[in-house]
Nucleic acid binder design. Structure first.
Lengths: 116, 116
DNA sequence: ACCTATTTGTCCGTATGTATG
DNA sequence: CCATACATACGGACAAATAGG
């Protein structure tokens, strides 16, 4: 099963569901164009309410990771693919900084500076 | 009354409520630190469901216009104030572009270029 | 220190609407 | 026309944080 949640966690169910999908995308298990199981299916398999899943899906849509269409469902976006690629580059950047003797906090400051 | 909605509009109720608050902030009717009426109050006065108002408030929170705290309510952020200031500068920029003979589409392109 | 009321947060259930296939 | 699937709205319930007495 793709999605897993922990009912005992203080993390809200909808957030757990969204996080699980996000993680799957970042691990490359979900490629652009692929379709997520319908909210109804997920709700059934996780034994949560349909709305809880829909809220998770809508959060993911707001982040640009998926597209939602009535009658069609949830589809991974191209942008999600690019997020993944970017995500994969981070460890290399961190390693390179370490090689150059740049501290993690200094690297963070550099990134922050560049994106301001 | 601060908020108004049109039940006949195709625009969802929660979006109408959020848009009304947004507009009020941009008109300067709501300053940073001011508190919005509680979701319950708004729901009562607009005759909509409590959850509909809460969703509007949560959208506004996600945009950074308000802060939400249990037991305390919804408070306009400093950032909202800055949004308003930025908003107020736009007409001046447009007027200045016009004075300089820069077309609206060219101005748009310049802004787009600068923010890429 | 305690209790209570207020207010948002989450989740569930139900109903209806609307776009897609 | 029909089934699927998301979108919105309503209602109820309980939890958790805050404020005030």
């Amino acid at each position: 099963m793709l999605l897993r949640i922990d009912a005992g966690s203080p993390e809200p169910l909808f957030a757990q569901i969204a996080a699980t999908v996000r993680a799957a995308v970042l691990r490359g298990e979900l490629a652009a164009g692929e379709r997520l199981p319908s909210a109804k299916e997920v709700a059934g398999s996780l034994d949560v309410n349909l709305h809880t899943v829909l809220r998770a899906y809508q959060d993911l849509r707001d982040e640009g990771l998926i597209e939602l269409r009535r009658g069609r469902g949830a589809v991974i976006t191209d942008r999600a693919e690019r997020y993944r690629e970017l995500h994969d580059e981070i460890p290399r950047l961190v390693a390179r900084a370490r090689d150059l003797g740049v501290s993690p906090s200094a690297l963070l400051a550099l990134v922050k500076e560049a994106s301001s």
